[in-house]
């Protein structure tokens, strides 16, 4: 493998890594407020892509608005999911909640299949059509620039939310000490709802921004969900920066490994990483000893 090949794999790795980062952020945010891994996270990604294509193709809504509509609608699904399936479980028992999210994932998939069908949909048009960009012999697909840009905006937005807004600080407080948060008047149930809304929005953003490249289909959430989960664990379920670092690292590992070994193993890398981290360094690469989870 030449240096140029390696660079090409790095570019590809950073693209898929950015998507994993968005998913990992979703896992991290919900984990921070509930202590639970939300196995329906991948479905938000799937819904984002699905609804984007349906809004654009079937309803004829212009691309930008179709994308926004898909994100908003998926956010609403996230909120409904929390209100109908998570909140009624008053004791917040993590094991019960995890099983509920697995059930939710299956339900969302089946409903989508019934409503839309089992076939892949068409892709969305590229957000900025045109030939790929060549730099130093490395090809960068234009949509990759959108993926990176949107991921960067999402991370900056989240950081501002957590550091600058009162509700964001309340969310952090809730993840540090839930009982302490209630004592200062923070409605922790609302924080949980908000975290599902954010996680759903981030999943949908990833789903929409990739749909010009990968056609959405009802089962696409499962595998990306697993990768987002692996990325979140790799990052240590810590803060937004750790989630993004985990996502990018996983994307790079996957692509470089498939370049060196064989692309047959590409999807297995996430599992190897997941198990490896859990065995060797369960707190993740960036988990440290910090108690704060967002």
């Amino acid at each position: 493998m030449t240096g140029k090949d390696l660079l090409q794999f790095i570019v590809a790795g950073l693209s898929s890594g950015a998507l994993y980062a968005l998913l990992a952020l979703g896992f991290t945010i919900v984990y921070a407020s509930t202590g639970v891994i939300n196995f329906a996270q991948g479905e938000f990604y799937m819904l984002g892509g699905m609804l984007g294509v349906l809004a654009f193709d079937s309803l004829g809504i212009p691309l930008v608005f179709a994308a926004l509509l898909a994100i908003l609608a998926t956010t609403a699904v996230g909120v409904l999911f929390e209100l109908l399936a998570i909140r009624p479980r008053k004791d917040g028992d993590p094991l019960a909640l995890i099983i509920i999210t697995v059930g939710g994932s299956i339900l969302i998939q089946s409903l989508t299949r019934h409503a839309v069908g089992g076939e892949e949909l068409a892709t969305l048009p590229s957000f900025s059509p045109g030939p790929s960009i060549g730099i130093a012999g490395v090809t960068i697909v234009r949509q990759s620039l959108w993926i990176w840009g949107i991921t960067a905006v999402a991370v900056v937005g989240l950081t501002l939310l957590y550091r600058r807004t009162r509700f964001g600080k309340a969310m952090r407080a809730c993840s540090i000490d839930r009982d302490g948060a209630r004592l200062v008047g923070i409605d922790t149930a609302r924080v949980v709802t908000a975290s599902f809304a954010l996680a759903a929005a981030l999943g949908a953003i990833a789903g929409v921004v990739i749909s010009p490249t990968v056609p959405p289909v009802f089962y696409s959430g499962a595998s990306i969900g697993l990768k987002g989960f692996a990325a979140a664990i790799l990052g240590g379920l810590g803060n937004p920066v750790a989630a993004v670092a985990g996502g990018l690292t996983l994307g790079l590992l996957e692509n470089i490994a498939s370049g060196f070994i064989s692309s047959t193993f590409k999807d297995g890398i996430a599992l190897v990483v997941l198990l490896g981290v859990l065995f060797v360094r369960p707190q993740g690469l960036f988990g440290g000893r910090s108690r704060e989870k967002v």
Binding site: K169, A173, I176, D177, D179, A181, L183, S290, R291, E292
Partner: peptide, 12 residues
């Protein structure tokens, strides 16, 4: 309530 154990938000 100033609770036993204080329940501060330590990393904030």
């Amino acid at each position: 309530l100033v609770p036993e154990g204080r329940r501060l938000f330590g990393s904030m």
